[in-house]
Write a protein that binds this DNA or RNA. Structure first.
Lengths: 340, 340
DNA sequence: TACGGATGTGAGATCGATCTCACATCGCGA
DNA sequence: TCGCGATGTGAGATCGATCTCACATCCGTA
């Protein structure tokens, strides 16, 4: 443990000035004589001085660190966003601390608790719960700016960047209906409750607007993992009078459905038509390629980061709520249904 | 910005003791009267006191943060490892700061530079370069423990957790040879130089041990992205006398090869046999499923984290170098070649 | 010439937690 | 009863950077 530790004091001594003067020279504020400043800078350079951010943080109360709490960093959706956020923050000399909630409210609470004592400057969150959010409200009230992504917290007024889940789901189901389907299954998620509910609403609204009665038995619920989705798919398609089409609410569920249907020997789109929410690279590798509702994923992270940085810079304006539209990408997984 | 800021001083005042005594009670060291201690704890509880980690860090010189510098957090390989590391660190109340080098040495240098001034306790790195690593050596000499994953730095003696790239590649090519192939293409990577070289060596060694002459024209080089791999694949298979089999050095290249071959109308395994390095979920969704050399990815992160935590706890033993074996997972992408 | 503003610089306080040291007080054995 | 060790507590220093304030100069102008 050979701690280097070139401190301001060392630089000041080397330049034969006081710490105060050295600080002024290095941070260029206040009055400093040209020659003195030069001597300080030269000394700092020579010694390899690097300011201790922790000490700065103690005074200012803030570390140049932003916390990101995604549902799951392994989910490519969040991994992409994390990457984009990091790139944006780096431009402003901030670091990103990622702490995954694993879609578990209790863990989310613990994480925020521990991040709070770190004097973190701001947070970008994808809240796990749709209801149990008192801890987030409290966090925001303590002064650290918060930007929500993917899901919002009703009780909290702050910047948010989400996607039109309801509209996207509606568009997907509309598309299936327009291809002659009226027994349309839904594979939904029980954890990312907020987005799941919105997508469910889209499903229901589409059916209703086409005068198709809602049949609860066509709705499968599973945790958002490929394995659980496989089981749920098999359950859904094992009953008599099975759906002719399926809408899945996220990419992991879509993958599960793909595997589940294959294991049952049902072919896409001949036996079952499929539309998934969220595009994923796998979607173009299957045969046929999968029709999906794509989210503008490349825009979410940068925008959220920019919002947060603006707040950190002191911008005081009303909270902004951005809701990106989705886009239906038609590929080959939906068949036109003729008669019955 | 309503800074809460319940400090030790507040607690001490509320309990009518000095800061020193309050600290003793809260951290249970030194002598404290039972009754006094109780009063302090009660006051802390009541006020919702939370120790300021930054202040602690200023004294101790270390934040409970570990830095992770992967090649690319969007690569599922690193995302998985990041997740595993985080889980392990969390058990020991440490946070994970992720800073992706994007496989760029210069960026890696900058990142480490900025992380250094953060008083980060230790680092888990996947070095980008095979040669330009002076900055990493220097980092390690400054005292912060470093654990390398996926790739090692020859000049530096420290814990490392890697995979038997050479052996894995050899096994893959051996398998292709045993299926009658002798014109075996290689799609390799020019950025993750260390692993790429080892895998190239495995390819060469396998061919040599089977008495097959190395044909440079069968080796395609591309950056490790799906898009670049597509191009390289098309180039490789456009020439006369094209390979009958292809070995790809990572999962992104494998995906690119898949797309490239499909766009050329070449079917797997009928026209071309394929083996990829690194398993990926997509590999089982294609038809046929892809034969791959799998890495024990679930073991890398936890082990690296454990190594680092041991170093942080002061363990002083010789550096450990773990090299995990790989495993060939035979699926359906390789055909037995009959005659020519 | 003298005075006020502009210019430079340093001493010391501050952020919050922790640690050392000095100073009490108590009890028990000599 | 004295003394010494065990026990309990507080004052102040410390970590490193920064900021306030006070104190020097210097210059130009009244």
């Amino acid at each position: 443990m050979t701690q280097k530790g070139i401190t301001l004091k060392d630089v000041a001594a080397a330049a034969k000035v006081s710490r105060a003067t050295a600080a002024r020279a290095l941070n260029s504020y206040g009055y400093v004589g040209d020659e003195t400043a030069l001597r300080v800078l030269e000394a700092a350079e020579r010694l390899g001085y690097r300011a201790n951010l922790v000490a700065q943080a103690l005074r200012s109360g803030q570390l140049p660190i932003v916390g990101f709490v995604p549902g799951d960093i392994q989910n490519p959706f969040f991994a992409r966003i994390a990457h984009d956020i990091e790139v944006e923050l780096r431009k402003h000399r901030h670091n990103l601390l990622i702490a995954s909630s694993e879609e578990n409210v209790e863990q989310e609470k613990e994480l925020l608790e521990s991040l709070r004592s770190l004097s973190i400057r701001g947070f970008i969150l994808a809240p796990t719960s749709a209801t149990d959010n008192q801890h987030i409200v409290q966090l925001a009230h303590e002064g650290a700016p918060v930007v929500l992504i993917d899901r919002v917290v009703k009780e909290l007024q702050c910047d948010s960047v989400v996607v039109d889940n309801e509209g996207g789901a509606r568009e997907a189901v509309d598309y299936l209906v327009s291809n002659g389907h009226d027994r349309i299954g839904l594979l939904r998620d029980d954890s990312r409750i907020f987005t799941a509910q919105e997508r469910l609403a889209g499903y229901q609204n589409s059916l209703q607007s086409h005068g198709i009665a809602l049949d609860e038995s066509l709705i499968g619920v599973a945790r958002s993992t490929v394995e659980h989705a496989v089981d749920a798919t098999i359950r859904l398609f094992s009953r008599r009078n099975r759906p002719t089409a399926l809408f899945t609410v996220d990419s992991l569920m879509t993958q599960g459905a793909l595997l589940g249907l294959r294991s049952m020997g049902l072919s896409i789109p001949h036996d079952v038509s499929l539309v998934g929410f969220d595009d994923f690279n796998l979607a173009t590798f299957t045969d046929p390629q999968i029709t999906v509702v794509a989210q503008p994923i490349s825009e979410i992270g940068p925008l959220a980061a920019r919002f947060l940085l603006e707040r950190l810079a002191g911008k005081k304006i009303a909270p902004r709520h951005i809701r990106f539209p989705t886009r239906l990408i038609v590929r080959g997984s939906v068949a036109q249904l003729h008669g019955r």
